[in-house]
């Protein structure tokens, strides 16, 4: 998969729940064999459909002296973006999970080319998160993801409220 420039980067509480725009799409996406609950705001749905190229939301789990979660958004060009590493959320938006590691620790290192490499995780589905939230605000993609065993147990049987 060829990936073009990084659109932007968001970390942690960039989109806390209380400020998340009204969800226009709620459903599940299969990442590495695990069902993940995903919510996408109306602005994000619109931005994805307006985008010239499909957008990939990469869920990066960074194993270092601390464990950092962040969502990276990239426009994808070239070959069909859906493959064994990524899944389609809806036309124009794809999601993928990637565990990374690095030889030195710097949690503030969030440049275009972070010094990370893919980590060979055994049974990666166990490290795939339980939920993802994606928003688009002031021309920037925003998002967060997380883990919650309790939350997972509360997942509704049929969570698709609507589809864009």
């Amino acid at each position: 998969m060829e990936q073009s420039h990084i659109l932007n980067l968001s970390i942690g509480d960039t989109v806390p729940a209380r400020r998340l725009s009204a969800s226009a799409h709620a459903g599940r996406v299969n990442l590495k064999g695990k069902e993940v609950l995903i919510e996408v705001s109306a602005d994000a749905v619109r931005a994805a459909s307006d985008s010239r190229l499909p957008v990939l939301a990469e869920l990066e789990l960074y194993f270092s002296c601390l464990v950092r979660k962040q969502l990276r958004f990239r426009e994808i060009n070239g070959v069909q973006p859906q493959n064994e590493n990524s899944s389609r959320v809806f036309p124009g938006l794809y999601a993928a999970f990637r565990a990374v590691t690095t030889s030195h620790c710097s949690v503030a290192d969030v440049g275009d080319k972070p010094p990370v490499e893919t980590m060979p995780v055994c049974q990666p589905e166990r490290f795939v998160p339980d939920w993802i939230r994606i928003d688009y605000r002031a021309g920037q993609w925003l998002g967060e993801y997380g883990y919650a065993r309790k939350y997972r147990q509360r997942l509704p049987a049929h969570p698709n409220r609507s589809h864009p």
Partner: peptide, 12 residues
């Protein structure tokens, strides 16, 4: 930690 995207103790 949250600002830096560090997973919480509960999440870990």
């Amino acid at each position: 930690f949250k600002n830096k995207g560090v997973a919480t103790v509960e999440e870990l």
